[in-house]
Design a protein around this nucleic acid. Structure first.
Lengths: 354, 354
DNA sequence: AGCGGTCTTGCAAACGTTTGCAATTATTAT
DNA sequence: ATAATAATTGCAAACGTTTGCAAGACCGCT
């Protein structure tokens, strides 16, 4: 790389007529500086167009004002939303964001964690839908500030975490569908190795049990949070000798697939088939009919995670805080009582416990 | 940050019984190393779990194996797709990705460029839908490797660029609609300060002129590539005393809004109103009716940009290459001949030139 | 005027790496 | 065998910053 040598702290020092340490201290807000010199330094910085070299700063032991974010897949709107809110919150706190994607390759996680925490960043956020792993233990032992963001609640007992009541959210959907009168409710699961998928499946079963409805394994079809698998799943579900009157998809994208299969068979939603999703991605409100789903507080999650990380950086020894954000059932137009039931099913008895 | 001191190159050197420079050379693939020592070093690296400190490496003048990517908005699927393909291509080339979002604040661009190019990254990619700016000139003078990705073709004459034939794409849509028989075609523009928006508007006008159709300013409504504005625009367009029989939206998201307004008025697409979009985001194929649109080669763009940047890093003095990728008209179900025209309009004469 | 203390300031070391240079050793050609 | 050449290696300097330490300047007090 040719071109003019970048201006360093020493250039500024010369220009301002002070020592380079003084420049450094001015730039870092060190308290005891003669106002006059401070002014001269600031002017010189301006005049020369100086800006700090982050490499050198963090090598020398200062903070880099950069935080790392590891996500497993940028493609889905869920991730995109959370990333965006983190990015905004971070900008507010005068931090830069470095983003890494694992593309679902779990073995890359440890590699990235290693790269980033070797000086590059002051803190780490992880948006990875998986269980506890050894590198977290290491991070914790090193007292390296980090935060986990996930949509399930069970994690280890030392990691600062932001999660949601997504299990309850899934339960709420089921309760709603059951209250509408549905008794055969199909369920398209999420990707089985994600804990959130297991949690939602559990909630599905728990709700059935709580309202005394039978559990028919044929109504549960394994998906992976993607459109294609959900399309196949829906086809299978609707081909059942006794098809479901409602389908609950483990995420919105899967619910879109249900719409499309239904439409291709001339089934109207919700008249002939009720559909519910999960996540409330922006798209869901625009669909026709608008999708009934569970809103995950995506923006709030990013903000909470940022705040938590800032706190942890300020005091790496503080006990791990665990923030749980509420989900919310968003009732739109995609569900109604089943067609061949004369009247909405009224659960006469209270459920057997939640 | 407490915890065990990270293992450095010197630790490895001690463990392997060689000098630290040798370790560095082994790690950087320097050719003249005794095979025996190389093996010992590699073993020591493994045993100690060493990994390089990127800060120090780039400070010392080596390459950081990190490239920076500045985008203006992560939220839209267009960006997300390109980012993803860049990320993948980069991983392939053994580079890390650092991502910055400007959230549409143009003044942040220069700031980020400055931060990143001061040692942090070996090269820069910019996915910013705007015209030439001073910092590009600087970058070029410093011979700092960078690549511009944009969906319009006119840029400066020194920047390596990846763009698409999006102007032609817009023209193709118009030609298609005109061939179907439409004579009053509404146009919802993109965000006016984006060059791509201006280009598409131009293409709209050019096509009209080429086929001898009148240009009615009332049929052009300013949008901003977002849903809401497009919704308003569509409402206005359909409220016209002589409403259009087709609407061409400058991007897919805007076309979705057209769908929704049409539906809310009981208009069927395409029977009562033809709709065309631009971008071919994945969603578009799933809509009902599936959206006719122009496919931008999002994945190919990311790949081309990565290759271009790699080449530029290898030889910063090579002349700026400009890659133009073809768009493609994707005909699906959202357009058909206008209802009240007895027969599809057949352009008898060739257009007056393209 | 002299004293203890608090502000300011600069020097130098350190962070972990790459790389030019020079020294040493191995290889080849004569 | 000898000179020339090539391969291999280590030392030390450099990259741009932060920060501990110590010295000088300044303050208020007696």
């Amino acid at each position: 790389m040719i071109g003019p040598r970048p201006v360093t702290i020493k250039d500024v020092a010369r220009e301002a007529g002070v020592s380079y340490s003084t420049v450094s201290r001015v730039l870092n807000g060190y308290p005891h500086i003669h106002p006059d010199k401070r002014r001269r330094v600031l002017e010189a910085v301006d005049r020369l167009g100086y800006s700090v070299n982050l490499q050198a700063r963090s090598l020398a032991g200062g903070h880099s004002q950069v935080i790392g974010l590891i996500v497993h897949d940028l493609g889905n709107p869920y991730t995109a939303q959370v990333v965006q809110s983190i990015d905004e919150a971070l900008a507010h706190a005068e931090y830069e964001l470095v983003l890494h994607t694992t593309h679902g390759h779990h073995h890359k996680e440890a590699v990235y964690v290693d790269i980033l925490t070797r000086g590059m960043v002051d803190g780490l956020m992880m948006l990875i839908p998986l269980g506890p792993t050894p590198y977290l233990q290491q991070l914790h032992e090193r007292r390296f500030p980090y935060v986990i963001i996930c949509d399930h609640q069970q994690y280890d007992d030392f990691s600062p975490t932001v999660s949601t009541t997504s299990r309850q959210g899934a339960y709420d959907v089921m309760r709603y569908l059951i209250a509408l009168g549905h008794r055969r409710i199909g369920f398209i699961t999420g990707r089985p190795d994600f804990i959130s998928a297991a949690e939602r499946l559990e909630a599905y079963k728990a709700a059935l049990a709580a309202y005394g409805l039978p559990l028919d394994p044929a109504l549960i079809y394994t998906g992976d949070y993607q459109y294609r698998a959900a399309y196949t799943a829906t086809t299978a579900l609707l081909d059942l000798p006794q098809p479901p009157t409602a389908i609950f998809a483990a995420n919105d994208l899967s619910a879109f697939a249900v719409y499309d299969v239904a439409r291709s068979r001339g089934l109207r939603v919700p008249d002939d088939l009720s559909v519910a999703g999960f996540d409330d991605v922006p798209q869901s409100a625009y669909m026709h009919p608008a999708l009934t789903t569970v809103r995950q507080p995506l923006l709030a999650m990013g903000e909470a995670a940022t705040r938590l990380l800032m706190d942890t950086i300020a005091d790496p020894n503080r006990p791990a805080e665990r923030i749980v954000l509420p989900t919310e059932l968003i009732i739109r137009e995609s569900c109604q009582p089943p067609a061949h039931s004369e009247r909405p099913f009224k659960p006469s008895a209270q459920p057997k416990g939640e």
